[in-house]
Design a protein around this nucleic acid. Structure first.
Lengths: 340, 340
DNA sequence: TGCTGGCACTCGGTCCGCGCGAGTGCCAGG
DNA sequence: CCTGGCACTCGCGCGGACCGAGTGCCAGCA
C-alpha cells in the first residue's frame, strides 16, 4: 500500500527531526523540511493514525508529536543501512586505541573514545574471566603463611588474591606448586578449571594437600565469582548536557544505576558478538533506565563474546550513529585483545 | 575584644546555618536559632562589618547573607575540634572495608564508603608506584619475540606491560632473567630502581644484553611514567542532588574535570599523610573547580603518603564532618595496605 | 478514494504588573 | 555599645492576558 509506505516515511522523519532538534515536531515543519510530496494536511492524517497505533504521542494538546518507545523501536528495527563512520572517525579510532600499554589502558581508551564519538555515557566491561583461558599462574610468598596468587589470562587480564595457607611453606614447595599449577591450567578455559582442580588435589603428594587445597579454593573462587566483572564508565558529563530536556526526573537515578554496576552488567550479560542490541526506554527492566536507551554489543574475536560494551543515553538519541560507533569500537577492541 | 569574638561566632553561625538549610541567612533567623545573647540589630551591625571585610555577601539586596570563599576559609581554619565519627559510623567503616579481596577491591570499597559517609563525590588515588617497593617481578613469554612483564608492589598493586624483545628468546633464558631481576629489584623502592637498572645491564652476559635492555627500558618506563597514576571515582550521583542550588553553572564542567583525572591528581600531589588539606572555591586553580571545595588527605602507614583520597563537593559543605570522614577512611586504608 | 486548502478551536508558554514579605540600613534612645 | 523602631529596597510568586503553533474537521477537487 502506498499509504503504509508513506506513513513509515513520516515516522522516520519525525524521529530524525526530533532527535536533531529536540522539539516536538508538527505537520508543517515536517512538510517543509522533508520533501514527502504531500501537504501538511495529509501528514496530519497520517500522524493521527500513527498516534492511534501508539508510535507517536503529543506531550500536550497543541504541540507537535514525539516518538514513543514503540516508535523508536519500529524505527530501529527498520534501520536498514547503518550509517558508516567517516574516514576521519575511523582514523580517530585507530589513533586513539593504538599505543595502549595494557588491558586497563585499552579499556580506558575505549570508553573515552566511545563517549566522545557518541556524546553519550559509555560503558565497557572487562573481559569475563570464565570465557578467557589461563595464560599463566604465579605464586609469590608474602610470608610463611601467606601467598599472593596472580592469575594472568590470555585477554591480558590480571587477577590477584591473597591466600592464607594452613601450614608453613618453603620457597621450594611454592615453586614446585607453581609449576604444577601452570602445567595443569595453562591454556585451559577458566570455565573448565573446576574439574581440573579436583584432579590436581587428588594427584598431589599427601603432605602438599592442604597447601594445594587452599590455593585451589581461592583460584576457584576467583574464577567462579562473577561479582568481579568490572566495568569502566566514561562520559558521564554528557548526561549533564540536556538533562532537563532528556530525562524525566533528574539524572540522579541514572548515575546511581551506573555506579551500581550490577544493573549494567545484567544488561550486558545478554549481548552476543557482532549483533548490536538496542533496548529502549520502558523495555529496560530497571526503573532508573526506563527513560533511557542502551545500545550494546559484545566484543571478542571468536564466536563468543569476551565482554560487552555500549552506550547509555536518552531514548531520543541518534541510533544509527551510535550503533555504528559501538560496533566499530567493539571490533577494534576485539582485534587488540586478540593480538596481545 | 568582645566584639571580634562575637563576630566570629556570628560567622560560624552563618556558615552552619547556611550549610544545613541552604538558604541565605538573615539576622532575625540567626538570633532566633543560635542563642548569641544579642538582638538582631546588633547582629546586623556585625554582619555589615563581616561583609565589608569580605567574609560574607548577599546574593541580592533584600536577601540574607551567604558565606564567601574567604568566609569558609576562615571558618575551616578556626575549626577547633574535628567532629569525631559516631560509633555506628566507625563500625560501618570497618564492616565495609573488611573482606576486601585485593587492592582494586579495597579502593573500590573505600570510594563507595567515602561517598556514602559524606554524600559527596569521592576520589581515591591508587598507591603511587614510585613510593612503593618491588615485591616481585614476573616475566611470561607470549611468543618468541614478546614478553609480558608483571610487576607486583608491596602495596598490592599489579602493573603489566608487554615487552617486544629484539631477539628470539628461549624459555630458559627468560627464567634466568626473571631470577636476576628479582634478585636485583625485590625490596627496592621504585624510585631507586633506575640506578639498579644500569648496573644490571652492565653486569649481564653480553648475549643477554639486548634482552635485558629491552625489559629494563619497559620497566623504567612503567616506574617513571606518572601518567598511570590511577584514580577511582564514586558518588557522582551526589552531584545531581542539589545541583542547581549548589553549583553555579551546571555540574557538567565538574564531571569533565573529574574524568580528566589529571586535574584531581595534581591536587592530590600536594597532600601529606595525616594532614587534611582543604581547598575552597576560588582557591582551586582549575576553572571547573572554582565553585567547589576539595577535602583531601594522604594515606599510608609510613611518614610519606602512598597516595591520596578525598571528597569534592559544593563550597557549601559540612567541612567538619567531611574532614573527619576523610581522615578516618584514610587511616583504615593505610592499615589495610600495610597489612597486605 | 484519497489528497488539499481553509478554518475554527485548543491550550501551553511567555510576558507583564502587582503585592507581599524578608531583610536591610539608619537613627535616636537607653 | 546595644536595642527597638522605622522607612526602604527588591526578589519572588501569582494571576491574567496575549500569542501562536498545531490540531481536527470539512468541503472541494483530481
Amino acid at each position: 500500500m502506498a499509504h503504509d509506505d508513506r506513513r513509515l516515511q513520516v515516522l522516520r522523519a519525525i524521529v530524525q527531526d526530533y532527535v536533531s532538534t529536540n522539539d516536538p515536531v508538527g505537520s508543517k515543519a515536517l512538510a517543509a523540511r522533508y520533501d514527502l510530496g504531500v501537504s501538511p494536511a495529509t501528514i496530519r492524517n497520517d500522524m493521527a493514525v500513527l498516534e492511534e497505533e501508539g508510535y507517536i504521542t503529543q506531550p500536550h494538546t497543541s504541540a507537535g508529536r514525539v516518538p514513543t518507545d514503540k516508535g523508536y523501536r519500529f524505527f530501529v528495527d527498520r534501520l536498514s543501512a547503518v550509517k558508516p563512520l567517516s574516514a576521519a572517525e575511523r582514523k580517530a579510532i585507530e589513533k586513539f586505541l593504538d599505543g595502549a600499554v595494557d588491558l586497563h589502558d585499552v579499556l580506558g581508551r575505549s570508553v573515552r573514545l566511545l563517549a566522545q564519538l557518541t556524546r553519550q555515557v559509555a560503558v565497557v566491561q572487562y573481559p569475563t574471566l570464565s570465557r578467557s583461558a589461563v595464560r599463566h599462574l604465579e605464586l609469590v610468598p608474602l610470608s610463611t603463611s601467606r601467598l599472593l596468587m596472580v592469575l594472568i589470562t590470555d585477554t591480558g587480564r590480571v587477577e590477584q588474591r591473597i591466600v592464607e595457607v594452613p601450614v608453613d611453606t618453603e620457597a621450594d614447595t611454592v615453586a614446585d606448586l607453581r609449576s604444577r599449577l601452570n602445567a595443569a591450567f595453562t591454556g585451559a578455559k577458566l570455565a573448565e578449571a573446576s574439574d581440573k582442580v579436583s584432579d590436581l588435589v587428588d594427584s598431589s603428594p599427601p603432605q602438599l594437600r592442604p597447601l594445594v587445597a587452599a590455593v585451589s579454593a581461592t583460584l576457584l573462587e576467583t574464577l567462579v565469582e562473577p561479582s568481579e566483572d568490572r566495568l569502566v564508565i566514561g562520559g558521564t558529563a554528557n548526561l549533564a548536557r540536556g538533562s532537563a530536556l532528556d530525562f524525566p526526573g533528574t539524572v540522579r537515578p541514572l548515575l546511581e544505576a551506573l555506579e551500581e554496576q550490577v544493573v549494567v552488567l545484567r544488561l550486558m550479560a545478554e549481548v552476543g558478538p557482532s549483533t548490536v542490541t538496542v533496548s529502549i526506554g520502558e523495555e529496560n527492566e530497571h526503573e532508573a533506565l526506563t527513560g533511557a536507551s542502551f545500545v550494546s554489543v559484545g566484543y571478542g574475536s571468536g564466536d563468543q563474546a569476551l565482554g560487552g560494551l555500549g552506550v547509555v543515553g536518552p531514548t531520543r538519541m541518534d541510533y544509527a550513529g551510535n550503533i555504528a560507533a559501538v560496533r566499530a569500537v567493539a571490533r577494534y577492541v576485539g582485534h587488540l585483545l586478540a593480538e596481545s
